[in-house]
Amino acid sequence: MTTLKDIAHDANVSVSTVSRVLNDDHTLAVSEATRQNILDIAKKMNYTPVRARKADKSEGKTVADSPVIGVVVAQSIEEELNDPFFSSIRKGIEKEYAKRGLSTLHTFRLKSMDQGEMLKGMDGLIVIGRISPDTVEKMTNRMEHIVFINHYADEDLYDCVHVDFVKAADRAISHLRSLGFTHLGYIGGKEREHYFDGNAVIEDERQTTFMKRMQEAGNLKMEDIHIGEYSMQQGYDLMKQAIQNGNLPEAFFIGSDSMAIGAMRALHEAGLRVPSDVSIVSFNDIEAASFSSPPLTTVKVYTEQMGEVGLKLLIERINGRKLPLKVVVPTKLIERDSTCPKHERG
């Protein structure tokens, strides 16, 4: 019996690439020649998806037994590469999909979608990222079963999975305050709402929560807030800017681990030590956070679980559940070596 590994060996690509090509993943960056070669090899080997093999052995199969599911990624390839938050959600969807032995999962990027054609034949849709109300309306006019991940859709109509960013930001800020710091800085990126042909910058609750808490404490200094894009390079550039400005904060809340890693590089180049000179708390807990130098104290977001839950909710809706559900995935402060009490500095 032919396996994905057999096809991958003949095509000289990874098993993951084969899986994504056979599942019509339009977000995969491979050449058309490679894509066609994989399809030709699979056809030549008479490859049958796992779920299809199971279905052949069953009777009375319904749509819910093997639904055709679409995943719409609002972010561009560059955004997804710069911020693993979104790719990790997608990984969670794919893991749950594989666990269930589902045979048909199509993945699209919002900006490259043919709105009418690509949604035809879909039994359900998972949307990753924040999209405009107009885009939501266009999608829901064509699709009955939709789950939104990291987006505040109408909770009376749709299932959604998201994080309480206010609570998560409070965890980071409270941790720094508990260590004795009062002069805090913030480095973050722009949060965007996406639509089919563009995007618009919207409120980022990490930033607004930081500003609110600093204002409440009488410590808000706008010159200590630095905003760019959610990438490692921007974290580096913004921290360099903060250093050049002078009167550097004692500690920073940084909106993503990737930005924090870049920021720590800028501090190191300036001869400043983390945490002896500057403490840092970041956000996400990507794999690299525990391997950075020093390892990052960060607010962990269970992004893969967000994807897994999203797929489970969608299957339930396809199977007949009518009541829409909102799932708020918790966060957790992970203490590592990028913070220390103020009295231990030096």
Rank of each mutant, 00 (worst) to 15 (best):
R109Y: 02
R109P: 02
K111V: 02
M113E: 06
Q115F: 07
E117G: 10
E117N: 14
M118A: 10
M118P: 00
M118F: 05
L119D: 06
K120C: 09
K120R: 14
G121K: 09
G121L: 09
M122A: 04
M122K: 09
M122Y: 02
M122Q: 07
D123I: 02
D123A: 03
G124E: 09
G124D: 10
G124T: 09
L125D: 11
I126G: 12
I126C: 15
I126S: 12
I126Y: 10
V127Q: 05
V127A: 06
G129L: 05
G129C: 04
G129P: 03
R130S: 11
P133H: 03
D134F: 04
D134C: 04
T135K: 08
T135H: 08
T135W: 07
E137Q: 10
K138E: 13
T140P: 01
T140I: 07
N141A: 15
N141I: 04
M143E: 00
M143Y: 01
M143F: 01
E144Y: 00
E144A: 01
H145C: 06
I146L: 05
I146W: 02
V147D: 05
V147I: 11
I149M: 14
I149Q: 12
I149D: 08
I149V: 15
I149P: 05
N150Y: 02
H151R: 11
Y152K: 13
Y152H: 14
